[in-house]
Amino acid sequence: MTLLASRPELVPGTLDMLVLRILQWGPQHGYAIGKSIRAQSADVLQVEAGSLYPALQRLAKKRWVTAKWGQTDANQRAKFYTLTAEGKKQLGREESRWAELVTAIARVMKPETE
């Protein structure tokens, strides 16, 4: 069952990395993570809740993040996710793999510039 109804903009398999990246700045709740991705991508990447929440569960299951209920600044109860040490390592791995991928794709797409 693939419910990852990804928009063409979001490269499949990158959502986990994006979420980890956002959490690097500190604990955050799901709604804010979604907004952050959108904001930081200048509204290009729209992460749907239907993908985001299962992804968070997946990261929690792999123990890359931990979750804890808390209060937002607006005094709303929300579940905050925190990056674990294992999650940081995973982020590092995914970042370097992503960098390799981007470079490789770039080489293919624009070979003459190299």
Partner: peptide
Amino acid sequence: EIRSHLAM
């Protein structure tokens, strides 16, 4: 968690 998302 979903309710909290919707509320926000």
